[in-house]
Design a protein around this nucleic acid. Sequence first.
DNA 1: TAGCAAATGGAACGTGTGACTCATTTTTTA
DNA 2: TAAAAAATGAGTCACACGTTCCATTTGCTA
Lengths: 289, 289
Amino acid sequence: MALGGATMDERVPRDFQTLRATILERRQSLPKRIAQIAAYALDNPDDIAFGTAASIAASAGVQPSTLIRFAQQLGFDGFTSLQQVFRERLRERNSSYDERLAALRAKAEEGAGHRAIFDGFVAAASTSLSDISRTLNEAHFEEAITLLAKAETIYVLAKRRSYPVASYIAYALGKLKIRNQLIESAAGLNAEMIGFATPADAVIAISFSPYAPATIEETRTISDQGVPIVAITDSSFSPLAQFAKVWFEVAEADFGGFRSLSATMALAMALTVAVGEKRRDSGRKPKSR
Amino acid sequence: MALGGATMDERVPRDFQTLRATILERRQSLPKRIAQIAAYALDNPDDIAFGTAASIAASAGVQPSTLIRFAQQLGFDGFTSLQQVFRERLRERNSSYDERLAALRAKAEEGAGHRAIFDGFVAAASTSLSDISRTLNEAHFEEAITLLAKAETIYVLAKRRSYPVASYIAYALGKLKIRNQLIESAAGLNAEMIGFATPADAVIAISFSPYAPATIEETRTISDQGVPIVAITDSSFSPLAQFAKVWFEVAEADFGGFRSLSATMALAMALTVAVGEKRRDSGRKPKSR
DNA sequence: TAGCAAATGGAACGTGTGACTCATTTTTTA
DNA sequence: TAAAAAATGAGTCACACGTTCCATTTGCTA
């Protein structure tokens, strides 16, 4: 008549989430060695799923019998039943991200239907998001936020393919009540607009290969006026990089010759909102004159 | 000698992709029962990963010994080695999409840092893409493509938050040499622009709650002129829906009050490119790609 | 500090495993 | 069609596996 876990508790965790919760809940009251395994199990669920009782016990630094006691305390009748839950977890979780993407992409490539085109764009967007999430340079991100939060006016500069991003940034900045100026090509007054920018302002410039000559030229001009520039572009060889105080390299996947914009969009939105938050936090007193 | 697989072939597939390719390549030359297992293995990789030789053989309808022969023909020294590859596949594939998203979202919610903001937007975008990929109505999609492909001029109508999407559509249509007209609010000539549209044209209208009054008004006007409308909006109660011949319901996830645009963007790009392709196919001789 | 219960380590055990072998059937070749 | 080779099915076996048991250690209570 030892621990209630084994015999009294009839609610045996059948799925991983429940099991995890149960373990975390009891963590404090577990004996040392059992707790040792509990921690190992939550940290290395894959090992539990595939390993043998002996190998797992060795990895966790305990005896195989302890492993079985652990399982029994949780209400399972043995290690094997416990292991089922860990295996079910692997089995039930949707086919992996990459596999799903590969499937989408395969369909998009082989299938001639229109749905394939859609799948292709979704795949491209997902890939781009996944990439940027992995590769975003946090230091650069912070730097850009600081730089932009100090600016009196944020100028947003982009043409052609990048223009939708710029227009969204302008919209979001407006909603956040941050003064901004979108440099559009429509009215042909770019030179004048740019002329107003001072070193107390800042620029977000966006351009991807093939870089719109106008964007480069305007970036150069505004850079010469001493206005700090945050650039979003696609490689370190980008002509934008040389002018920028901070620049982000965003690799967008493409489909059918049309590159995704999703990663750039996500970055742009994050930048914008982060700047808004930073300004609010610093009591609406940017370090300007 | 018959099959070099077992002894001669030294390139044993170590990863699932290679293994899969190898099996598919040899599929024709495999004996009946072996092929039976090969098919089962590719169709039920999870079962191979978790089952015992006996259980798998029973499921596949063969003898356990055949399973082992299958493994040996592929160059493995037994079923166990083969199984390792199937397990490695489960192990290596990144944590599931949902888990990853949950992690991002959790970080975004708890973490106060700026990185959290970025993660939040990436998560929102990913969720939106995943949703639309699941829920897209293919019939509507085809209908919209047909409708737009027939149009002489495609009018693109969107304000505020949806405007970036519209500007991208306009850009892409231009690249595809499809005549189009973006209804911008800048010049204040919207009424005149809209006046030119005829039933031979078509409109892509995009608006999300809170629906920009101007968009609704212009959509109504252009609808009254008999111009067919494809709408992208966020619910069946959207005022756009009543005017539209075809409409898409796109549920965008949001973060910090800013909705993602990624799903709308993907749909817009797919629509645009599909229209371009349809025109090419029906304009010239329809030719398989 | 003594006494007791819980926790742990380690060895022993019976079952079910994968792999091997060989007889039989099927397919290929001459 | 006969002979040879390959493929298959089924029985067997060594062994690794999960489990149980028991002696020992640790921790708690009085």
